[in-house]
Design a protein around this nucleic acid. Sequence first.
DNA 1: CCGGATCCGGTCTGATACTG
DNA 2: CAGTATCAGACCGGATCCGG
Lengths: 117, 117
Amino acid sequence: MNAKTKKSQGFARSRCPVANTLDIVGDKWSLLVVRDLLHGKQTYKELAESPEGIPTSILADRLKRLEEGGIITSAAYQERPVRYAYTLTEKGKALGEVLLAIVRWGKKYVPGTQTFK
Amino acid sequence: MNAKTKKSQGFARSRCPVANTLDIVGDKWSLLVVRDLLHGKQTYKELAESPEGIPTSILADRLKRLEEGGIITSAAYQERPVRYAYTLTEKGKALGEVLLAIVRWGKKYVPGTQTFK
DNA sequence: CCGGATCCGGTCTGATACTG
DNA sequence: CAGTATCAGACCGGATCCGG
């Protein structure tokens, strides 16, 4: 079943901060989720509706991973049915600096990029 | 054969700078290669010897992609046999800012990280 | 209806062997 | 040494299914 909550990321052989960080958010979706969270989105639905179209299976997996990694926390905001609101931890909010650097680079060097929202 | 030089990344439906940037360097290896290049490494061998152990097939593919993306350029520094030295373009060097943000975050939030080099 | 789990085909990864 | 070929297995992504 969900016995493989964590699988492909079990490691710890690298000490370089770049490698360590990329092991956590070095994939195409994680930082996009963080971006949305920084922009105020909180629910599963809101995250799933982003224009990039993240598959639900990937979204659920990333939310799980980000929570295990201490990047986000989930809190039930209603019972029956239970619904969770995902929010960034301090550690997660700190990724805003990384995103900012990425945004600056993208705006400057990737044609077709538009000022976000 | 290598007819699929670019496949899974060919598109441009996203306008968000974050998504655009991640489409280029949003994988586990690309930024590590850029990191090494920033640190002065230039040859295939030097890049392949990094402690993270990038597979040669992946390294060759990433070098190709990074060159197509205008992040690096390759120049033959000797004939018979031909040997190429890979160097960052201005666009590639600018990624140093992104790496810097990543390093800062990693050092602060990922336990076990050591000051690079 | 919403959040997510499950299935499944296709792609990519990564280890190793191989070639010029 | 630089890069390619190969191949099994991991992962992605789209669709569908299910519990609440």
